[in-house]
């Protein structure tokens, strides 16, 4: 099957001010994701995993290397033609708009007519279980409900790809668990391609088809793990634990070695 997203030799240097020397954030990142696949990028904080999402999501246009979506280079695709859903670590809702109007904001932005937008928004509010909260303002909702709204917003625009940047890391574990399960449920129904960034290895193991493991700065994908477990998965499945342990051990040895070699 042709790759949905293909990243070749992605390299990113952050320039500060006018100084010539920059900070190498990503070096030689290569990967390919198939349509409908759920892939996690797992790495320690500061390894550049969010930077990859920013580039793929079109928020950062200064990079070296190539990003292809459906075989077409990202830099040559006009932004209006991209249809993505982005879920950030914080809900990033517009505080002056109700739940419903936060979702219609996204729908109208991508070109839905106003009346159709309301209907679509309502159906996605129902999907994430916020029925009855359409007219609440974000400050009246709990953190989990705010993140639900942001998930509804991202799926509502019917994106080709969903980018998620540690969306559950600021929630308590109980809320995060139920949101993970709901996310998988929505993914099963819609079969979107999802690229999910996290530093939580258990989360990555539970959610994904494949996991890309990243090193510390300069960030690079050093290993790829296929999670060959049937769905729906149970959190207390011993095979999940075993795989998670393997990933953690692998991580500690690789990153620990790097750290030792650097003497940091």
């Amino acid at each position: 099957m042709a790759a949905h997203i293909e990243v070749r030799n992605l390299r990113k240097v952050f320039q500060f001010g006018s100084s010539k020397r920059g900070l190498l954030a990503l070096s030689e990142v290569n990967f390919a994701i198939k349509p409908g696949e759920f892939v996690c990028i797992l790495g320690p904080s500061g390894c550049g995993k969010s930077t990859i999402l920013n580039i793929l999501g079109g928020l950062d246009a200064t990079y070296e290397g190539e990003v292809l979506v459906d075989g077409v280079s990202l830099s040559s695709t006009p932004s209006q033609k991209r249809r993505i859903g982005y879920i950030f670590q914080e809900p990033r809702l517009l505080p002056w708009r109700s739940v419903l109007r936060n979702i219609t904001f996204a729908l109208e932005s991508v070109g839905h007519p106003r009346s159709a937008a309301r209907e679509t928004a309502q159906s996605f509010i129902n999907l994430v279980g916020l029925t009855g909260f359409e007219h609440h303002y974000p400050y009246q909702l709990s953190g989990g409900m705010q993140q639900r709204t942001s998930i509804a917003r991202a799926f509502a625009v019917d994106p080709d790809i969903l980018y998620m940047d540690e969306p559950f890391s600021s929630l308590d574990e109980i809320t995060a668990r139920s949101l993970r399960e709901e996310l998988l449920e929505i993914w099963r129904k819609t079969h979107k391609t999802i690229l999910f960034v996290t530093h939580n290895s258990m989360e990555a193991t539970f959610l994904s088809d494949r996991i890309f493991l990243m090193t510390r700065r300069p960030g690079r994908i050093y290993e790829e793990v296929t999670v060959d477990l049937p769905r729906p998965r149970a959190l207390d499945d011993p095979r999940l634990f075993a795989l998670n342990n393997r990933i953690v051990t692998n991580f500690l040895s690789t990153i620990g070695e790097l750290r030792g070699a650097r003497g940091a």
């Binding site: 079109g58 914080e90 991508v110």
Partner: peptide, 10 residues
């Protein structure tokens, strides 16, 4: 961050 959010929705 809200401006970034609005950019992702074009």
């Amino acid at each position: 961050r809200l401006i970034d959010m609005s950019k992702t929705f074009q």
